[in-house]
Design a protein around this nucleic acid. Structure first.
Lengths: 224, 224
DNA sequence: CTTACTATTGAAAACTATAATCATTTAGGA
DNA sequence: TCCTAAATGATTATAGTTTTCAATAGTAAG
């Protein structure tokens, strides 16, 4: 799961990044309006943490632009001023949650988790597809009620494919979401091939399969 | 957490062992009545999985002996015949649960977890002591609502100390429960010292402390 | 059918995290 | 005081994960 933190105070930013990276999210950051706008245009995220007061613009504007462009990532507004007006404005513009500063880092994590869960699997504590069940809370995976041990990257890949099931996932999108954007202009996709291979092997007894789409990427299908 | 599986069918035994070891339990085994009796006499376990029909005796007898000796480990009876009589007899003798064969391995794990939880923290999904909270489901630990990252051994040690809080825990008992009995005649406790040191460091901001009891072991205390 | 590119695979290498060991210092109890 | 236990920092070993590499197989287009 990939998050974008838009926040200009360096210390706060570092704090948030650390907290969330420790929970295995891919975290990217932007420290001003224009950088944020650029990142949002180029990549896509599962959830965006948006500080309202930015040096070169207002976060609510950014949110408006974002929603207008038809993107539908989750958005949590982070704001120094706990004003009811801002809160309402934000939620009206389509934000998923509003978090007034100062807040506990554990609170941050809880909110992010809640937003991701609401978006991807409407509050359900586990996702089932074919004979595979996934428990995001514990990152456990079961096939036919037998536990299946996946390591971090394998789990992240499977999760990303599942949240996009039956849709085509380009290799670039996959790389971005699982590895982060430093992988951008990768000259080879060997690392993806390798992980996909291992994942497929582990999913031998599952009724889902990862299909290659020649020249583009992968698609997750349910075997019937 | 240390388990003892008493079971004479090799295949079943291997299955059970694998399932439980994969969940990071320390697993020991006995394949007949007398071996089981011996192990129970010498070591102590957090939960015992007891097959009723053994080549050289009846599991219920073993259970009776066990309870008579004042030991209080959790016991789950595993039985081929799903007879109501056996079940009642077992539960009357103080077993915690009854699992008729055949069963799913995931069921096994669930039952063990349930028994351990019931014994140590009667059904509570998390344990709190001082400003430390532990979530056994996810093996996560929080201090003052900040996540604290422990690795496997550190977590196991903390957990064992907490389930015996304010009681003296000998180094031998600790070694047995966290490492298993191959450590028995260890000539040095360096590995314990080392882990304790790291654990203490991580618990710096916690209001619990691990006190050494000279020549014997450790005791967990709450700072007030 | 041939060619150029893409995907799959197994194995090796690099990297990371964890755990155990060792050498040294500090402290406890008789 | 002396002997042993415990604590500590640094080092080494081990295990697990991820990436790279080289060889092979498959696909689409000319």
């Amino acid at each position: 799961m990939k998050l974008l933190i838009i926040e200009d105070e360096p210390e706060m930013l570092e704090n948030m990044r650390q907290t969330l990276e420790r929970q295995h999210y891919i975290v990217e950051t932007a420290t001003d309006y224009s950088a944020a706008l650029h990142k949002i245009g180029v990549y896509d995220y599962d959830c965006i943490l948006l500080d309202i007061t930015l040096p070169d613009g207002n976060g609510l504007e950014l949110l408006k632009t974002l929603k207008a462009s038809g993107k539908d990532e989750g958005v949590i507004i982070v704001s120094a001023k706990d004003s009811l007006d801002d809160k309402l404005a934000g939620l009206n513009l389509g934000a998923d949650d509003y978090l007034p500063k100062p807040f506990h880092m554990s609170e941050l994590h809880a909110r992010v988790k809640a937003v991701l869960r609401r978006r991807h699997f409407d509050g359900n504590p586990h996702i089932s597809i074919g004979n595979v069940s996934i428990f995001p809370e514990t990152r456990e995976v079961m096939v036919e009620n037998q536990p299946l041990v996946l390591n971090r990257k394998e789990y992240d890949i499977l999760m990303y494919l599942i949240t996009n099931k039956k849709r085509l996932v380009t290799k670039t999108a996959l790389a971005e979401h699982v590895w982060g954007d430093h992988i951008d202009q990768a000259d080879s996709f060997d690392f993806i091939y390798s992980q996909i291979k291992n994942l497929r092997k582990k999913l031998e007894h599952a009724t889902i399969t990862i299909e290659a789409v020649y020249g583009v990427g992968y698609k997750l299908e349910v075997i019937s």
